[in-house]
């Protein structure tokens, strides 16, 4: 079985979809940032009346917020991406991945038919799937080739 065949067999809701947090659309950027940081999360799905209204990620923070303190008190809906690419929970993991590649996005919220959120599909979902298949290599074996910065000067 190859990886893509495995993903085709796997329903998207069986994947790890935990990589997100939620916030309300009228919340201030400052509050949303605080919530994201508290939960160590970098993708906030923005809700309005319980339905998905947009997405706000660390990329938005980098591009729009980081050096503009005046944005902090404005509602997050001013800075979120409101056209969110979503996928039905009936789809397979391979569909979600193909959509991600096609739309060139990093987050695909998985939604119920009524638009309520089931989870968030990211590249980590696929990597986690793969890691489960190779637990001995990816999880239990301590990698031996990685390097850390050394204080020793090299080449000089």
């Amino acid at each position: 079985m190859d990886l893509i065949a495995g993903l085709k067999q796997e329903s998207v809701i069986k994947m790890n979809l935990a990589d997100y947090c939620t916030a309300e659309a009228d919340a201030s950027v400052k509050d949303v940032l605080a919530a994201m940081n508290a939960q160590h999360c970098h993708n906030a799905l923005i809700l309005r009346g319980g339905k998905l209204a947009g997405i706000f990620t660390d990329r938005d923070v980098l591009m729009k917020i980081a050096d503009n303190p005046e944005t902090l008190d404005k509602p997050v809906s001013d800075f979120m991406t409101s056209e969110v690419v979503t996928i039905s929970k009936a789809a397979t993991a391979a569909d979600a991945l193909a959509l991600m590649s096609l739309k060139h996005v990093r987050n695909i919220p998985v939604v119920e038919d009524d638009g309520s959120i089931v989870g968030n599909f990211t590249h980590f979902s696929v990597l986690d799937f793969l890691a489960e298949k190779f637990p001995d290599v990816t999880l239990t074996h301590y990698p031996n080739s990685f390097r850390r910065f050394s204080r020793r000067r090299h080449g000089g």
Partner: peptide, 12 residues
């Protein structure tokens, strides 16, 4: 390094 090592760091 093996690709699996990258998978290791990214997942863990």
């Amino acid at each position: 390094a093996s690709v699996l090592e990258a998978v290791h760091f990214m997942t863990s």
